[in-house]
């Protein structure tokens, strides 16, 4: 594909781009529109809100909003738990992946196979025993009670992604730097860290998305705002009265939790794609 495009090719690319954009973004736009409908317009049956209203956002964000406490505590839990689970996973995985990429030791394949096995594990299968154990040792409905199982989601993929990244780092640079008179620490910091950091960061991003997405653990292992994450909390929203549907509030909350995802994707699309495809450090 040359750099000069024929008119036909240009038209084709325009069409393809529009189709992809609409397909990928439409549901997001759809719930965005719903979130701006006033509660009396929720059933209007239109795509656009008949009147633009921010009442749903007031409900979840403004002080005194009926779902504010519920939503903000869930947001705090989700961010905190996902971040901690990500950090732990990335630290453990960095050590592990370094060993796999640079050292030769028996059991390497066992570790990689285990990571593979854990990553395809049906989450629902282990939620019952965890629930039972957590009740007995007091981890039920606590942050650690979610962080630990989240490691089963974040750790395997971190190990895989990072091993791939580390394998592509030209470790000779470190020796070269040492030959040039740098101390081992300097060599590591100047030569290796800049090469490894993007990989670690990308891995953290991917791991965070996974933890952020969890629903099964979130609804099974929590029961109060002490640890309940956002996806689980959405089921607790309530409308103006006991029986009314919380469609608007859920949509508004959904939009709020989607914004960071979109921002991260826009900023780091290149890194995420390379992290998920090649593990290459293309810079």
């Amino acid at each position: 594909m040359g750099s000069v495009l024929s008119t036909r090719a240009k038209v084709w690319w325009a069409v393809i781009t529009v189709v992809v954009l609409v397909g990928a973004l439409f549901p997001v736009v759809s719930i965005f529109m719903t979130s701006f409908k006033a509660s009396s317009d929720i059933n209007s049956g239109t795509f656009l809100p008949p009147r633009w209203s921010t009442e749903n956002y007031e409900q979840i964000l403004a002080s005194g909003g009926s779902a504010q406490e519920l939503f903000l505590s869930a947001l705090r839990n989700s961010i905190g738990i996902s971040l901690i689970a990500t950090v732990i996973a990335v630290v453990l995985a960095t050590l592990c992946a370094y060993a796999i990429a640079r050292l030769d030791f028996p059991g390497k394949r066992l570790i990689l196979t285990t990571a593979l096995g854990v990553s395809i594990f049906p989450v629902v299968s282990i939620v019952t025993p965890l629930f039972n154990l957590w009740r007995n040792i007091g981890l039920y409905d606590t942050w650690p009670g979610l962080i630990i199982p989240y490691l089963s989601l974040t750790l395997p993929i971190s190990i895989w992604t990072l091993s791939a990244f580390f394998r592509q780092i030209p470790w000779e640079l470190e020796q070269a730097a040492q030959v040039d008179g740098a101390t081992p620490w300097q060599a590591f910091r100047k030569a290796i860290v800049p090469l490894a950091a993007p990989g670690v960061f990308t891995t953290a991003l991917i791991a965070f998305f996974i933890a952020w997405n969890d629903f099964v653990y979130g609804i099974s292992l929590t029961s109060t705002s002490a640890a309940r994450p956002v996806p689980a909390a959405l089921a607790f929203f309530t409308g103006a009265s006991y029986f009314e549907e919380p469609t608007g509030a859920i949509s508004a909350a959904a939009v709020v939790v989607t914004i960071p995802v979109v921002v991260l994707v826009v900023l780091f699309q290149r890194q995420i794609v390379s992290g998920l495809t090649q593990g290459a450090v293309k810079g």
Partner: peptide, 13 residues
């Protein structure tokens, strides 16, 4: 698991 759990719990709770 328990040791780890307790450790993490102590730090977080």
């Amino acid at each position: 698991t328990r040791a780890l759990a307790v450790l993490v719990a102590a730090g977080l709770v």
